[in-house]
């Protein structure tokens, strides 16, 4: 990890450090903000951003190191296998410690080839 952070932000919330292994991006993540929102708020792009409601599944990440707490996520995308593999949706997950994440969505949608307009 680039640095260990346990400082409080202005609201008194603990702030953790999140590292995205795919891109090397590192950003601060308050405990009361989802990992995805915290990433976007600081202008990072490493995790694809979709519906922010746990429904579409594009922000799927694997927690390689650290602990998260997650709100309900669509069973279409997060089933028993994903839970065993520590895969969560970044839009529904809050950091409980410093984190290392890798992008696990089947579509790294920003890089997808599109031969027929939409697909």
């Amino acid at each position: 990890m680039a640095r260990e952070t346990r400082q409080a932000d202005n609201d008194g919330a603990q702030v953790f450090t999140v590292e995205l292994l795919d891109t090397g991006e590192v950003f601060a993540c308050p405990e009361d903000q989802t990992v995805l929102k915290a990433m976007l708020a600081l202008g990072h792009k490493g995790i694809p951003s979709g519906c922010h409601g746990g429904g579409c599944g594009v922000c799927m990440v694997k927690v390689e190191r650290g602990e998260v707490r997650s709100l309900p996520m669509s069973a279409e995308h997060i089933g028993p296998q994903q839970r065993r593999d520590n895969i969560v949706l970044a839009c529904r997950s809050f950091a409980q410690s410093d984190l290392q994440l890798s992008v696990a969505g089947k579509m790294k949608m920003n890089m997808k080839p599109r031969r027929y307009g939409f697909v």
Binding site: P48, S49, G50, C51, G55, C56, V58, S74, E76, M107, M109, N110, K112, G117, F118, V119
Partner: peptide
């Protein structure tokens, strides 16, 4: 510009 979310983000 077509944004990727238009066709890749749906339920």
């Amino acid at each position: 510009e077509l944004v990727p979310s238009f066709t890749d983000v749906y339920t």
